[in-house]
Write a protein that binds this DNA or RNA. Structure first.
Lengths: 204, 204
DNA sequence: ATTTTGTTTAACAAAAATGTTAAACACTAT
DNA sequence: ATAGTGTTTAACATTTTTGTTAAACAAAAT
């Protein structure tokens, strides 16, 4: 039998390259030729391994969704206390964002074009669990009382927006790469302080 | 001479339709045929009025940028007190978002593909002015002390993210249109409370 | 060695999208 | 009425992108 390494190598290389272009560089409309060039392979290999451009896109999209969800799940269902979970989530998001800054925005554009969702069950379980924890914290007074969904929206907004909108922000505010990275680095404490009413303020 | 109405009517109709498709429905890859169909005109009229697809895109993009900036400028340079400006900005953003929910995300994807910026001077003046006001508020203790840019990022994130990410959010959280609109309606107070350390809490 | 199996390539075909032209059309001013 | 002007249309041409096929190729098994 043929060595399994080689074919999986190219197949994987193509997938990796597509991800890099989509999520890493924001080139959502990359043609098969562009992907092939970036990967240094013949264009028709995309058809050989993935049948069609659409199939490749589907796979990459599904992968991205799954990864996002697993990432979140492993934090939500961990044994960490609430506040630590949020910190973990922030750290994790920023790490992810370094490699794939355009991931979330890509997911959104895909959803706009009428994409289905993957593991709906898992998502629901996770949300329920997190909801409950949020409610407990509100009872304790650690966070302001509001609809739990609003707390989640606040949290995700504060974390994800500056990542997704980096090109717009950085240009608008005329910031260098270094300046922007500094800002992102500083954000963890700021987000924590904003979400947790500044009790036990971390940075002062 | 020919009636000026008619030609401006179609030209404008095409622009309006393109905007509706891009910003209103998130169809960033609409073909000239799709735009023409949606506008109910012959496809080649796009070439007649705009020369090429790219030119049309450029114009729509420039328009969007300009509108956003003017909108923001008129608030920043108004005579309102700081807090009222923010409220105004929130209201304004939500109105805009009703018609063009995908506007900001479109701007970002365009920037990703290497787009230039329009009125850089104006933007700079505006930012400077707002920075100063933010600093004053921090001195007064109305808002937490942090780099002014971080306050701005917080503000814009809390406002724009739930709009831009609506399809993702709504799907993920399994919400109906009515439920989501309710959430957006509730957000104004939540955002104000989050930004202003909950003094004089609006909603309790 | 040669058959088998899977991979890669280039040439070709097909499809999709854009752009151009010239003729038809509508309206108005003369 | 018709000459003039700008608009709209359909037919055509071009370009871009995708998909297919058959042959070349490489490695391993017989």
């Amino acid at each position: 039998m043929y060595i399994k390494n080689k074919d999986e190598a190219t197949e994987d290389l193509i997938k990796k390259t597509a991800k890099k272009l989509f999520f890493g560089e924001g080139k959502f409309n990359a043609t098969t030729q562009e992907i092939a060039d970036a990967a240094g392979v013949n264009r028709t290999l995309i058809n050989y391994y993935f049948r069609s451009r659409d199939k490749l896109f589907e796979i990459v999209f599904a992968d991205a969704q799954e990864k996002e969800q697993q990432r979140t799940e492993s934090i939500v269902f961990s044994e960490l206390p609430f506040k630590a979970k949020i910190e973990e989530f922030i750290d994790d998001s920023f790490v992810m964002a370094k490699e794939y800054p355009y991931m979330e925005i890509y997911l959104v554009t895909q959803f706009n074009q009428g994409c289905y969702f993957k593991d709906e069950e898992g998502m629901e379980r996770m949300l329920k669990k997190f909801y409950e924890e949020v409610l407990v914290e509100m009872e304790k007074g650690t966070i302001d009382k509001m609809a739990p969904i609003q707390f989640i929206i606040n949290m995700v907004s504060l974390i994800s927006f500056p990542i997704s909108m980096r090109p717009l922000f950085q240009r608008t505010m005329r910031l260098t790469d270094e300046e922007y990275e500094k800002i992102v680095d500083d954000r963890k404490d700021i987000i924590m302080n904003t979400l947790f009413r500044n009790q036990n303020k971390i940075n002062q």
